[in-house]
Design a protein around this nucleic acid. Sequence first.
DNA 1: TATGAATGAGGTTTCATTCAT
DNA 2: CATGAATGAAACCTCATTCAT
Lengths: 205, 205, 205, 205
Amino acid sequence: MTVIQRKERERNARLKLIINAASDTFAKLGYHKTSMDLIAEKAELGKSTLYYYFRSKEALLITVLETGLKEFFETLENRISSESSTIDKIKSITITGAEFFSKNKNFFNFYVYLSAHPSLRKVVYKKFQPIIYKKLEVIKNVLQQAQKEKLIEQLPIEEITRIYGSLVMSMGIFTSPATTKKQLLKRAEMINEIFLNGIKINRDN
Amino acid sequence: MTVIQRKERERNARLKLIINAASDTFAKLGYHKTSMDLIAEKAELGKSTLYYYFRSKEALLITVLETGLKEFFETLENRISSESSTIDKIKSITITGAEFFSKNKNFFNFYVYLSAHPSLRKVVYKKFQPIIYKKLEVIKNVLQQAQKEKLIEQLPIEEITRIYGSLVMSMGIFTSPATTKKQLLKRAEMINEIFLNGIKINRDN
Amino acid sequence: MTVIQRKERERNARLKLIINAASDTFAKLGYHKTSMDLIAEKAELGKSTLYYYFRSKEALLITVLETGLKEFFETLENRISSESSTIDKIKSITITGAEFFSKNKNFFNFYVYLSAHPSLRKVVYKKFQPIIYKKLEVIKNVLQQAQKEKLIEQLPIEEITRIYGSLVMSMGIFTSPATTKKQLLKRAEMINEIFLNGIKINRDN
Amino acid sequence: MTVIQRKERERNARLKLIINAASDTFAKLGYHKTSMDLIAEKAELGKSTLYYYFRSKEALLITVLETGLKEFFETLENRISSESSTIDKIKSITITGAEFFSKNKNFFNFYVYLSAHPSLRKVVYKKFQPIIYKKLEVIKNVLQQAQKEKLIEQLPIEEITRIYGSLVMSMGIFTSPATTKKQLLKRAEMINEIFLNGIKINRDN
DNA sequence: TATGAATGAGGTTTCATTCAT
DNA sequence: CATGAATGAAACCTCATTCAT
């Protein structure tokens, strides 16, 4: 058994090695400018070895994305459930976003790039949209809970989820690499402020 | 004189032809998957003819983007100035966005894809960030005017401009191709509603 | 008549303009790296105009060479006939070479490059070998005269002509562009010294 | 171990195969007219295979030259050291040249063509001038030894080396492909005769 | 006479993938 | 398990030349 276990562990280590090398390089150069040669070099492995672990470049890409998104959503869920008041749960979503993006600036950019890439969108959407939608449920649930508690307006839940989601995402997309974590956190607070209270002074209309 | 004018006109027609072919194909397949051969075929021209008009594929790309963005911002400026009340001016921004995106679904996506692509970002940013920032002034000015008129809160103007900008952009990015113009316009209205009024029920937070 | 003459003069001016532009660019970049576009640009003419005056790039090349070689041999003949003693005539050959090469460093290099280029050699040889051989007669005649006057050994005339020719040429070929005219003239003197007297101390061999 | 050795041997065989194919074709058609396709075809390999072994066409060129020059100078050194008298050592230089050129007619021509090509000269010079200069030392040393032994005049060593070198080279350059080995050897003898003894009858002046 | 516009043919290089060991 | 070697397909780009005006 121990032999099998060791093999398993070694295999996982190799996988992680490749995924990391690929993730870094994809993020730095983009999917199309990253060659399998380069990934192999970064991973200090023979190129054919990549093909031993992954059917194709695209398969490798998918695993890279899967890994990154999983990490993000796990962090998010943990964070949300660590807050007790519903309003704080909402707020924690942008905060988590800010923290994650400042740590993984490139990863998100890379995800956006893929979502926007016509020839890859199909792959990305088919594979990840379901996951993301399921994960976005986390956000939706929080907002729904807030509606139930009459903390926020009874606007269509899908739409406000989408809008809030966009605001969180926008931190990952429209933020220059030079932005510091501190700035990002400030930005997150302002997003919360506006999302919750709006910017108009007299509330009629 | 007329000869020169006619040549000029013919030249412009050819340019437009190429730009359109390129724009369509870039948007459909993405920059990297679009070959010059394909563009030439679409434009019903010899491949070398493309190189007669554009130094490189990248130069063509830049012109395509330039053309698209110019069109968008021109529409935006016209629309804003056609509204009289400041609040309506603000609202018209998302509306214009919704209209433009529903007409040019692919173009925007394509712009995002480029902004997010590491190896092209430099080109895109260097060339377009200045233009876009100058153009975003239009939005900033409207919001500033609203602050002057005490219609909206005195929050940092740069930040709220960015946030509002993101919301407008998000319509272009996070919207599936299947979304109709009507749906998009509804979404624009909700964005305005939330941006202006927030979603929280009691305003003290 | 005057109209025709003027036309003729204009035509010649144009021709000279093109030949100069081509000569400069060929010499600077080599034949293959020089495009017709570049020559046209240098000559400040439309590219098609080159084709009005020359059937092809190769035809232009031939004219460029013709012009250069004609100039060289004219200078050479003048110089030789200006000397009275036969030994001085011989010496003047290398001197003239040194002077010409220091003024036209690139041209000669360029000629060598063509002679050595397999795919152009045929053209160059067919066209110029006869001319050059005829011109080399000038050198041969001088050497022959020296033999008749018993100034030099009765070695096979063809061979010593070839060897002396090589020595003259070598100044054009194996000389770095940095070499000054003064250095080149010194070198010419030494070539003469060695060619005439050899380097061995005791003449029996 | 044997596996590694065999791989090494196979690799070298492939390299040699490619270098030979390239060398032949370069010499026959010239660098610019030789396409990588053609070399691949000659070597009976896929074109991409060439790029597996050589970074670029230029890199291949450099290796071709390196190989050829190395062979020439090795032959030369062996030959020189096999002669015992200094005068015979000098003479052996032209003889070796004649032999090498008659065996590698094209190679030398090709080297000249490259040296004279403006856009390649930089590459060729940077890489090979040092090697050649170091190798020419061999010739210089022999001549210097002859001066020490008072066998030849005390003329500036650099200059006479250059001149003798040019004479050797000229056999490679100014010799038509039709010239036989016998003719070339005769020519070499005459070069030696003239270089050592000059052509003038009375040695004063 | 002069030229802007157009292009076919061909060049170098890249790269994901396969395969034999 | 791991990989060095090989390659087909396709990409971007260049350029001599032609043609209509």
